[in-house]
């Protein structure tokens, strides 16, 4: 069982009070008529399935009945943070695993990293 911090109620509650609602931060295209079928299909049906940090939307169904976002690790299932709708996560895949470019590595010529 998860013990989830609801950012609107300001306290931890049992998972039984919540429902997961899928991937967070999915933005509806501004002009649906101008979308190609592929863009519209990606918006409607295709979701990320990362190994590692993932942002999800949850709803406090029994309680304040507000939607909020949660950052979770898909391997350990650990809840890294919860934050209100409209806010941006402070923990992202990049902040957890810094991109390779930031680590100075010298590659000999002609050898693939």
């Amino acid at each position: 069982m998860f013990y989830i911090y609801c950012p609107y109620c300001g306290e931890h509650r049992e998972e039984e009070e919540f429902h997961p609602k899928g991937q967070a931060h999915i933005e509806r295209p501004k002009e649906p008529e101008a979308c190609s079928d592929e863009e519209w299909g990606n918006y409607l049906f295709f979701r990320d399935n990362p190994r590692g940090v993932h942002h999800e939307m949850w709803v406090h169904a029994v309680g304040c009945r507000k939607f909020f976002n949660m950052t979770r690790h898909t391997v350990s299932y650990e809840i890294l943070e919860t934050y209100k709708m409209g806010e941006q996560p402070s923990i992202t895949a990049d902040s957890q695993n810094p991109p390779r470019e930031t680590v100075p590595v010298s590659h000999p010529e002609g050898v693939r990293a």
Binding site: C9, R13, E16, E17, V62, G63, C64
Partner: peptide
Amino acid sequence: GVTTIFAKAT
């Protein structure tokens, strides 16, 4: 006062 689950009821 909190909204929660009593037995199986909201």
